[in-house]
Design a binder for these strands. Structure first.
Lengths: 166, 166
DNA sequence: CTGATTGCAAATGCTTTGCACGCCA
DNA sequence: TGGCGTGCAAAGCATTTGCAATCAG
């Protein structure tokens, strides 16, 4: 978590008359420790692995806090669980491409896409607030060679494949 | 529900060795009776209002069936409930603009957007499968005049506003 | 001190499932 | 008749919440 984020959170907490607690500090730090998206439960896992004294409820409450403060974005990756993205502060306009085979998520930005969306929104008589683009696709390599590097990587790291059913 | 859809469903049911039951028929018909998106519970409401003998469980099971058959699309409109879109068979490439104030959903298509997304996907080394674009915006009129026709309409028809918390 | 915060367990609410019965093919 | 489909109630599961104890300021 960079300084801008720290400052923003401090400001938010002060304005709200809230308190700084060790649990909050630790959870927030862990949320931004990696660039990867996470679910509530995954963040709670990080907390447990670090032997931090914070309950599941506090993790959920802190996530809600960060979302409200605009530091964390709730995004839809297609699963049934809510996913959070810690990278929107640095790249406010990025979009997501999800590999339907391995669930790997790739973030990308494109100014043309942004501009086009903006125009479309205005043409429809609206004022753009936020646009989220999710592209579901599969690797060329998977199709042609029968295996995709992301899939292999996902298997090696024993990563959870995308959830389809709750 | 047009003929193409009926045929497609018939085919799907036959291939799967499934049966045609009055409940299924009725639920499917109601699902495509209107162009509007619906949640599982809303579809169940329609069923009840028509005094059709079908339980909530059957409605859920039939929705799953339609999604699997590719006749219904599960889309993310930002609420916490799953939403289903019955219009993808006619317009496979449409996107959604959601008014953040009244929750009104507008469907739109744009070939430039499609093309651009397609190029982007390929450039990233992927093969496009499906792209869903959700734009969150608010009416110009709401900003300038303090009220938006959709909002008024939503209030008049006592429509549920977008769900924020479960 | 005072009230925000936490932890626990219970509650919520949507969705799924096990099972016995009924009905389509 | 065989076994898919249905209804009911119970189970699942992520998330939220009530409440008493605790802790920050």
């Amino acid at each position: 978590m960079d300084d801008a984020a720290t400052a923003k959170l401090d400001d938010f907490i002060r304005r709200k008359g809230m308190r700084r607690t060790p649990q909050r500090e630790a959870i927030v730090q862990l949320a931004f420790a990696e660039d990867e998206h996470f679910t509530s439960e995954e963040l709670f896992d990080r907390v447990r692995r670090k032997n931090i004294n914070a309950s599941r409820a506090t993790v959920y409450r802190t996530i809600a806090l960060l979302v409200e403060a605009g530091l964390l974005q709730e995004i839809d990756l297609g699963g049934d669980l809510k996913t959070y993205d810690p990278n929107f502060l640095d790249k406010p306009t990025h979009n997501h491409l999800v590999c339907v085979d391995c669930g790997k998520v790739i973030e990308f930005e494109d100014s043309h896409l942004e501009l086009l969306n903006d125009c479309l929104t205005r043409r429809l008589g609206f004022r753009p607030k936020r646009q989220s683009i999710k592209i579901e696709a599969c690797c060329e390599q998977l199709r042609t060679k029968g295996s995709c590097p992301s899939l292999i990587e996902a298997r090696l790291s024993r990563k959870r494949l995308p959830v389809r059913k709750r």
